[in-house]
């Protein structure tokens, strides 16, 4: 691990003011960053420990939205009574990710910035455009069973690893950030970038900007929602495919649908094409299957991961059945 300077500001203003230099990173739970530093993938010159900032609360706002401080631990969010009751999709997504120890450390803000677990990103002896721009992608012609089938490019097929972000994508969350030039709000679907020709850029966060909160909208029907994750082992494993589903079904007809997929996309994948099929349709197996076909219609398989297309479809159908039932 490269040497770095570690500072511990007590307030947000000082933390943001300390982050302007080159190669400065904020650190909260550290569950991903410390690992990447041990492997010499991340080499910050300075770390700004933000754990003393007052960003630890979960509050219901006057408009019914729920504002989650960036430093709220994954476990605290997952077991929060409001989240368990009104947003089970989010609670289930959080509890399906990592281990209890890591969930006690990892924060909501950090989760948004989680890096891919593509093995070629992790192994510094291989070319990787995300790690060393322009060096090439080892996964495209390598062992790519875990890699993405949606949103890929000729430069990168790395899967976005987060479960929480898949639920956040379905919920249409808003990311609150603050930098030296002030505050702004980023809609969730504009937060993560597709790899395109520049896979080293993963979010629209600007240098020095700090995530302060994630706000989830009041969605009364989200109390009926579900996150289904399919993986190689039952626990403590990344998704092969996952689905976050929120449906408003009235008299057997789907009024509104919010659907996102995980384990298959280069970013948390809002399945807009599936939502179009579902909206206004009868809640039955045929609708679910048609929606799943639409969701994966643009999928591009690689040598080892073509199985993910059918797996993701079945995962989505199962999750839709769980939430929407059969009319």
């Amino acid at each position: 691990m490269e040497p770095f300077k570690l500072i511990h500001p007590n307030d947000q203003h000082t933390a943001i003011a300390s982050s302007g230099g080159a190669n400065v990173k904020f650190i909260a739970g550290g569950t991903n960053l410390v690992d990447l530093m041990k492997l010499d993938i991340e080499k910050p010159a300075q770390l700004v420990d933000i754990n003393s900032l007052k960003l630890q609360t979960i509050e219901t706002l006057s408009n019914g939205n729920v504002r989650i401080g960036a430093l709220v631990k994954n476990s605290d969010l997952a077991y929060h009574p409001v989240i368990m009751k009104n947003y089970p999709v989010l609670s289930e997504a959080l509890l399906s990710g990592a281990s209890p120890q890591i969930r006690n450390m990892a924060t909501v803000g950090g989760n948004l910035l989680q890096r891919t677990r593509c093995p070629y990103f992790y192994d510094t002896s291989f070319p990787c455009n995300k790690r060393v721009p322009g060096s090439g992608c080892s996964a495209i012609n390598g062992y790519n069973r875990m890699n993405a089938i949606l949103g890929t490019s000729s430069q990168c097929i790395a899967t976005h690893p987060s479960d929480m972000c898949v639920a956040m994508a379905a919920l249409g969350a808003i990311v609150h950030v603050e930098g030296l030039r002030g505050k702004r709000e980023i809609p969730f679907h504009e937060f993560h970038l597709l790899p395109g020709q520049t896979p080293q850029y993963e979010t629209t966060l600007k240098h020095g900007e700090l995530i302060t909160a994630v706000e989830i909208p009041a969605i009364p029907y989200a109390a009926k929602s579900h996150y289904l994750k399919v993986r190689d082992r039952h626990s403590y494993e990344f998704a092969l495919a996952s689905a976050a589903v929120i449906l408003n079904v009235v008299n057997g007809r789907i009024q509104t649908a919010r659907v996102a997929l995980g384990g298959v996309g280069t970013r948390p994948w809002r399945a807009v094409l599936a939502e179009k099929v579902l909206t206004g349709a009868l809640a039955n197996e045929q609708t679910y299957r048609t929606a799943a076909e639409a969701a994966l219609s643009e999928a591009k398989p690689h040598k080892d991961n073509a199985f993910k297309i059918e797996l993701a479809k079945r995962t989505l159908v199962r999750a839709l059945k769980t939430v929407g039932g059969m009319s």
């Binding site: 570690l6 511990h8 650190i27 550290g30 569950t31 410390v34 690992d35 420990d49 754990n51 209890p100 120890q101 890591i102 006690n104 450390m105």
Partner: peptide, 13 residues
């Protein structure tokens, strides 16, 4: 009182 992985935590934090 909460379990964590000490290998992923800097002592100074």
């Amino acid at each position: 009182g909460r379990r964590i992985n000490s290998c992923l935590t800097f002592a100074a934090m």
